[in-house]
């Protein structure tokens, strides 16, 4: 199974057996997974999701964040400050906290934030569980909802120093924060790993702009639907 591509792209080349069920939506079937490409109207972004077979009766509908969540996850599991960062996460980002918590449950039935092993790497995904009959007709709203959650999680985890209130104090003030941040990001090169997962020659700096545009587009569509 090839590695999963990052959630947001600016170009897309379908692979495998290609199906176009509606304008702007492409399913690429392979023996390993089905890649779902959805053009996000009003943006330069194409969102890629994956239907990963789990067992005979269920699959995961997954959005790949590659290693972008890993530095923040390392802070969550740090020896002397992990509990405090986790506590802040639970209080301010209950969605992220719940997804992480659910990923430990077997069988998990709700949206999870977990990692999957692909050749040569471990990739973070935000994923919904699908039962077999749902595979044939995954609702557009469900795709958008997963894209929204994933883009929001990416933006939060990549910019947690600003987005997560109190985290700098918990990590020991500006000096301790910088030291610990350097330790985790230096180990991973997280931003460059995102760049490696991109398909369309996008530089890593563009990713966060794409994520914000994707999140805005999804939020707008959801708001319009709620008004109707």
């Amino acid at each position: 199974m090839p590695p999963l591509k990052f959630l947001l792209q600016t170009a897309h080349s379908p692979v495998g057996v290609v199906e176009r069920p509606s304008p702007g939506l492409i399913y690429s079937h392979t023996p390993w997974y089905t890649e779902v490409a959805l053009e996000l109207t009003g943006t330069d972004a194409i969102a890629l999701l994956y239907i990963l077979p789990k067992d005979d009766e269920s699959s995961l509908l997954a959005a790949c964040l590659d290693q972008a969540f890993e530095p923040f996850f390392r802070l969550l599991t740090g020896d002397d400050y992990g509990d405090a960062v986790t506590s802040l996460t639970a209080r301010h980002w209950p969605e992220v906290y719940s997804m992480l918590l659910r990923s430990n449950k077997v069988p998990a039935r709700e949206r999870v934030l977990c990692n999957v092993a692909t050749p040569g790497r471990v990739q973070w995904v935000v994923a919904d569980h699908l039962v077999a009959p749902q595979l044939e007709s995954i609702r557009h709203e469900r795709l958008l909802d997963l894209i929204g959650t994933s883009a929001r999680t990416l933006l939060r985890a990549s910019n947690f120093a600003i987005e997560l209130p109190g985290v700098i104090e918990v990590l020991g003030g500006p000096d301790g924060f910088t030291r610990r941040l350097n330790a985790v990001t230096g180990l991973l090169g997280a931003t460059s790993s995102i760049g490696a997962a991109l398909d369309g020659g996008v530089v890593a700096d563009e990713v966060f702009g794409l994520a914000q545009a994707a999140l805005d587009a999804v939020t707008n569509v959801q708001a319009i639907r709620e008004e109707m």
Binding site: V17, P119, G120
Partner: peptide, 9 residues
Amino acid sequence: TLVDPAPEL
């Protein structure tokens, strides 16, 4: 044509 570009396998 099914896997272009070929995965790094």
